[in-house]
Amino acid sequence: MTTGAQPPSPARPRRSRLRTFLPLGLAGWLLLEISLLAMVAGASNGPVVFLILVAGAVLGTVVVKRAGRRAFRSLTETLQQQQGGSAPAPGPNSEGNGLMMLGGLLLIVPGLVSDVLGLALLVPPLQRAVGRYAERTFERKLRQAAQGSFGDAFQQARIHRPDGKVVPGEVVRDGSGSVPGDASPDPRPPLTR
């Protein structure tokens, strides 16, 4: 058995913050929902909790259905205006459908915290504020992603292999257009051997 120095293993990439804290956040949210439902059941009784959950699911279904109809109607109007040759004009019903659907989905999810968040997303001033915040965040992330190019990302992926080995070189073709040592009649060599 030899006792030589082993080559250092490549450093494991760091986990993103989202992948680190999302499971913890979901577990905490689930515990909070269960404890709040247990507190409400203790203060009243089981049928009241059941009625709250059913009412939230029914209201959420109605909200999602209404928002879906509004979004489909807006899409249909936009397509008709484009086919008619006129520029599509955003109507009053064309904004906020996504957040309205999110609010409805939060109402459908069983729990009191999700119901409160879902109802809050149905309030128009709060819906506009959340929409503006989400739009600014999305644009900022898009600008950050645009600073690098796909060519740079491809180059980095090719150079920094998991095993750490990089072999610089080039393919030399002879006059027939095939790779030396390749007996295939196809001028393009296979991608894998």
Rank of each mutant, 00 (worst) to 15 (best):
65 K>S: 15
94 S>Q: 07
30 L>Y: 05
60 G>K: 00
146 A>D: 11
15 R>I: 09
58 V>C: 02
103 G>T: 01
41 A>T: 07
51 L>G: 12
163 D>A: 07
147 Q>T: 14
85 G>V: 04
35 S>G: 15
126 L>D: 02
79 L>D: 12
35 S>A: 15
18 L>Y: 09
131 G>I: 03
174 D>I: 04
23 P>K: 03
177 G>F: 03
177 G>K: 05
119 L>R: 02
19 R>T: 08
113 V>P: 04
132 R>K: 14
6 Q>V: 09
142 L>N: 12
105 L>F: 13
169 G>H: 03
83 Q>K: 08
148 G>K: 11
54 V>L: 11
56 G>I: 01
111 G>N: 04
148 G>A: 14
66 R>H: 13
32 L>K: 04
131 G>T: 10
193 R>G: 13
4 G>H: 10
48 V>D: 07
88 P>F: 12
13 P>E: 03
38 A>L: 15
84 G>N: 12
42 G>R: 14
3 T>R: 11
31 L>I: 11
122 L>T: 06
117 L>D: 00
106 L>T: 01
76 T>F: 05
115 D>S: 11
38 A>V: 06
192 T>G: 08
70 R>K: 08
22 L>F: 09
103 G>Q: 02
1 M>F: 10
177 G>V: 05
11 A>W: 08
7 P>S: 08
129 A>Q: 11
6 Q>R: 06
8 P>I: 14
126 L>Y: 01
156 Q>V: 00
65 K>Y: 14
31 L>P: 07
109 V>R: 05
74 S>W: 05
141 K>P: 00
29 W>M: 10
81 Q>W: 04
112 L>A: 01
63 V>Y: 00
132 R>W: 12
187 P>C: 01
25 G>Q: 07
165 K>G: 01
128 R>N: 06
33 E>C: 09
102 L>Y: 03
16 S>H: 12
118 G>L: 02
113 V>A: 09
46 G>N: 13
166 V>A: 13
137 T>A: 14
70 R>A: 13
131 G>R: 06
107 L>G: 02
23 P>I: 07
